[in-house]
Amino acid sequence: MTTPEEEPVTEAELHAWLDGELPDDRRDAVRRYLDDHPEVAHRFASYRAQRTMTARAFAPLIDRPLPDRLKPPFSRRHRALPWLALAASLLAFVAGGAAGWLAHGWSAPGAPSSRAFVAEAVAAHRVFAAEVRHPVEVGADQEEHLVTWLGKRLGKPLRAPRLAGRGYELVGGRLLSDTDGPAAQLMYQDATGRRITLYARPTRDPADTSFRFAHDGNVQAFYWRDNGLAWALTGELDRVTLSGIAEDVYRALNS
């Protein structure tokens, strides 16, 4: 007979963890599963980001009294139906992957597509910057192969900016997938082990080289569009420091 730790991890258990309903004896197994399956870990981070943004977006509705015009003259049981219908609608909306609206809860200016983009970048940062054994797919010792491979997948030339002047060295990078297709993540680390990530994906939007700022808790990001790519620099740094690094990245990419 298999123990709880040996049972395969299911999609339902991932959602149960998000909902705080995963049994204690399964948590270690799910953590190990996510460590060994980075593509699932990335998807799980997206679920978590979507859940957080949805909660923020609709929080004002939760405690608001039901308007009199929506209260049918029926029993108490029937009076709950409008809210049940709303809950079902929101569930279907989230399941449909409406990333543009889900990003509405972010502290980020710009169009919904930009807010969705930076949400993806920050979600990927949260997953892989904390990874100990497999933070990157291809290491910095294969930098030429890394940027050539990622550039080919993005359909645009790619380079890894030098950030040694800011105390950061390239760790490596990986290919990711977001709602619009392939994306690339480059990771850098300083002498203390602090990490920042540079996220890029193709974009059909016009270039906008002005920096925009977004944050979610202690994770902050500067993002912009240039040369057919959308870029986001993300890290757990103060805004001024991260802004300076973003300027260095921009200059390096356009030198």
Rank of each mutant, 00 (worst) to 15 (best):
V127Y: 00
R201W: 05
P202N: 13
D180R: 14
E131R: 12
L175F: 13
S177K: 12
L229H: 08
T209W: 13
F211L: 15
P109Q: 08
W106T: 08
R174P: 00
S113C: 04
A103C: 05
R194Y: 07
D216K: 06
S114W: 14
H215K: 15
L154Q: 10
D180M: 07
A111Q: 14
G110C: 02
D190S: 06
A108W: 06
L150M: 08
W149Y: 13
T179P: 00
A184L: 02
Q185E: 15
R115I: 01
V122L: 14
R204D: 12
R212E: 14
S107Y: 04
Q189W: 04
R194L: 05
K152S: 14
N218L: 13
H104W: 14
A207I: 02
A184F: 04
H125N: 07
L170S: 07
G173M: 01
D216T: 08
A111K: 14
D178G: 09
P182V: 09
R159T: 06
S114V: 07
A184M: 01
F222H: 15
L102K: 05
A111I: 07
G110M: 06
T209G: 04
Q220G: 03
R153V: 02
A108L: 03
A124H: 12
A207N: 09
R201L: 03
G105H: 01
A140K: 10
V147W: 06
A130N: 01
H134F: 12
R194T: 08
E143D: 00
D208L: 11
G151E: 09
W149P: 00
A214E: 03
L146D: 06
A140G: 10
A116I: 02
A129H: 05
L175W: 14
A191Y: 04
V171D: 06
L198I: 01
Y168L: 10
A184Q: 05
W224C: 00
A111V: 09
P109C: 07
L186C: 01
S210D: 12
A129T: 05
Y168G: 01
A129E: 06
G173Y: 05
V136N: 03
N218R: 15
A129S: 15
A119T: 13
